[in-house]
Nucleic acid binder design. Structure first.
Lengths: 158, 158
DNA sequence: TTTGACTGGTTGCGCAAGCAAGCTTTCGAT
DNA sequence: ATCGAAAGCTTGCTTGCGCAACCAGTCAAA
């Protein structure tokens, strides 16, 4: 906190691209995905997270962490998905405070039905514009960045 | 629309990183930036766009395009910034329908005051975790992706 | 010149998301 | 055994944002 080294030309370009992507990509995706499948991006993320969990079951708080959503938000999203029959909420046996969200059969079916549409959009918005070499070179960089961002929250800085 | 080729391992990793970044980065940035400067990410983007325009003046619709915000949103943001004295709205002389947003002196001062904080956050959240080589290799890939996303909106697809 | 189509912007409304305060259950210390 | 702290959600409220409907000003054609 005290050494303000300005961005050089390459960093600035990198930054601008990154900002543009973060603002445009999610919308571009959802604009097509939601009408086609009736699932928001967030819904889809929650269903995917559950589908990949053992027993297709996850603590509410774990779900919040893996989807990077606030606890309050995930609470309402899960309620909503429950109302729609895609998820079931069970009070956790060994801890009366906690709840688990479980993916129902209907939820799994819905997820599988949505997958092609999701895939098509991902390809159209990203991979159709990138070559194999691009992915190989940029992939690890993005992975490092993503990991760093995930690590930060705990009061970060220094 | 009909050839659903699944993502390979590298593509999937790339995609996951990208999604994580788009969801986490903006919040990470704003969480520190807003308290420090009183400007949201969006506010800052608008001020920057204006500061880079000739005469520090931009049509409302142009502002919407460069910030990737909806017209309705930009309308309200500009109103808000006007109320705060950072921007001035002038009815356009040669077209009675249009308005221009102009950055005021106070707005410019505010932007300059906010810059160090912005820079610090950008460094802390991104560039501190990446090497020069990372930026050189991934930069062009991100630039291409950003350009493709910007090009898409016009009914895209096919 | 009047009328109809269009463009630029604003407003009403609804949804997504977070924060802060609350409630219940658990756990640790006394 | 009790009591205070903390964990795990949930709920009330506010804000950010987009869509659709709307108003006003422009422009072209009849």
């Amino acid at each position: 906190m005290g050494e303000p080294v300005a961005l050089d030309e390459e960093e600035a370009a990198f930054w601008r691209s990154l900002i543009r992507i973060t603002t445009v990509l999610p919308r571009a995706l959802e604009d097509h995905f939601l009408p086609e499948t009736g699932l928001t991006n967030t819904d889809y993320g929650v269903l995917v997270a559950l589908s990949e969990a053992p027993e297709r079951l996850l603590r509410i708080s774990a779900l919040a962490a893996t989807t990077a959503l606030s606890l309050s938000r995930i609470s309402r999203v899960v309620d909503d998905l429950t109302r729609r029959g895609l998820v079931e909420k069970r009070k956790c046996a060994e801890d009366g405070r906690a709840s688990n969200a479980v993916l129902t059969e209907a939820g799994l079916a819905r997820l599988e039905a949505a997958f092609p549409s999701h895939l098509a959009r991902v390809r159209a918005s990203v991979f159709d514009h990138l070559g194999t070499e691009d992915i190989r070179t940029a992939g690890p960089v993005l992975a490092r960045l993503a990991a760093a961002l995930d690590a930060a929250p705990p009061t970060d800085d220094c």
